[in-house]
Design a protein around this nucleic acid. Structure first.
Lengths: 236, 236
DNA sequence: ATAGATATAGACCATCTGGTCAATAAAATT
DNA sequence: AATTTTATTGACCAGATGGTCTATATCTAT
């Protein structure tokens, strides 16, 4: 029915479960439009095969010993061969999905899903799209929003009225900013064209206001309380 | 056909384009399962209406003056009424989609999409799900992965062999860690049960290895080069 | 077994840091 | 006009910090 004038897409499989590996190979071969150019049961071997055969898509199992699945995504991406990675997993672990997508997987499908969906996912990914089943998209965003909640509240906190940094005068902020670059009294004095004594006075006032005892603590306070993010305004 | 024994979902609309506002209201009213409890042409009014009528879902236009759309999401979320927010937009600006989802929108639909899809989106969101059309999901992930690329490379850099932190011995790392808490020589000596002189020796070695001149710079180096993220292992 | 790396510690010294008190001038606020 | 805040500087001092040199005692790897 279908002739080979349209070149097949080259697929590589990495999964520590050989049964599953063989199963998928059968499935893809039956489909006819795919060419399974290699299979591997561990990541390092798989990465080598990717280097050798330069497949279009890699199906990469996420549920392997250690965090090898994620590492695989990183390693393959680092080769910069434009290889699309489709993550495969036995269950919908939100954290895994999030990390996999974050570091560059083009899609994520569950092993429990119908084979037609796997085929579809591969095709979408081949076409340069991202493919995530609706269920996983939901899982992803739940996790995504949750993981940003703390960052959001931290950020709100950073521009809170409780922030001791707001007590600082403009000049004191300038001095503190220089302190956060690890500059000495003399250095600050030179940069601001004021005497070293003046710098000391400012610094002492800063310590008072931030309720710390030394420059290191002041710098840490500044960093942890959004000294930088504060002035960049609402980053949402 | 359909009787009112099943209570209608309460919807509120916020859009600075009145025509569009009226259009959606008609559409939703025709549908029969929705009850448009309020409409507003700007965010502050809208937020007040949310407070008053406590709708189940807010359809919120993203393309309003300033960054009012995003601000609306933040404001409504802050009310903590469990209101689901469905973002509406005229075009698929990846940055907008990303920010909207990040701060808590439950979905994002384009005004150009078929009305059936809007209805579907509302229903999904009502059911506690996240709804993003496939096209927008792709846009989102492109942006998502791009925005993490720099963070990834920074992180790779953090566990790079070039990282001077790797030159430190275990003991020196311990000392540095205490320094990053703004602790004095004497304090470190007490914590580690060694003499103050020894601490000084370690600190001096640390300075040498990190090529800095004082503790503040050492602490900054540690923070900027993933001193913390490094030991948390691959955070991917 | 021997060389190298690591952890420990003392002595000495110059400089930096932080604390305190006092004082002047300009700017902002009341 | 009077008061408060801010920015500036000096003097003095104790203690912390950083640089250098030396010297053990382990431990590790060749």
């Amino acid at each position: 029915m279908r002739r080979e004038f349209k070149k097949k897409s080259r697929i590589l499989l990495i999964d520590d479960n050989y049964e599953h590996l063989a199963g998928i190979r059968e499935l893809l071969n039956l489909e006819g439009t795919f060419d399974v150019v290699g299979i591997a049961t561990n990541v390092s071997m798989g990465v080598n095969l990717v280097k050798k055969y330069q497949p279009d898509v890699v199906l990469l199992d996420m549920n392997m010993p250690d965090r090898d699945g994620l590492q695989g995504i990183v390693d393959i991406t680092k080769l910069e061969l434009g290889t699309k990675i489709l993550a495969l997993s036995g269950y919908d672990d939100a954290d895994l999905i999030f990390r996999a997508m974050k570091i560059g997987a083009k899609g994520y499908v569950l092993k429990t899903m119908a084979s037609a969906q796997l085929i579809y996912a591969i095709e979408e990914v081949l076409n340069g799209k991202i493919y995530l089943p609706n269920a996983l998209t939901s899982r992803f965003f739940e996790y995504f929003q949750k993981s940003f909640q703390e960052e959001n509240s931290r950020q709100e906190n950073a521009m809170d009225e409780e922030n001791l940094l707001n007590e600082l005068t403009q000049r004191e902020e300038e001095v503190l900013e220089l302190l956060t670059q690890g500059i000495t009294y003399k250095g600050v004095a030179n940069k601001l064209f004021i005497s070293e004594t003046t710098v000391k006075t400012h610094v002492n006032n800063i310590f008072q206001k931030l309720q710390v005892n030394d420059r290191t603590q002041a710098v840490l306070y500044a960093i942890n309380n959004g000294f930088l993010t504060k002035r960049v305004k609402i980053a949402v």
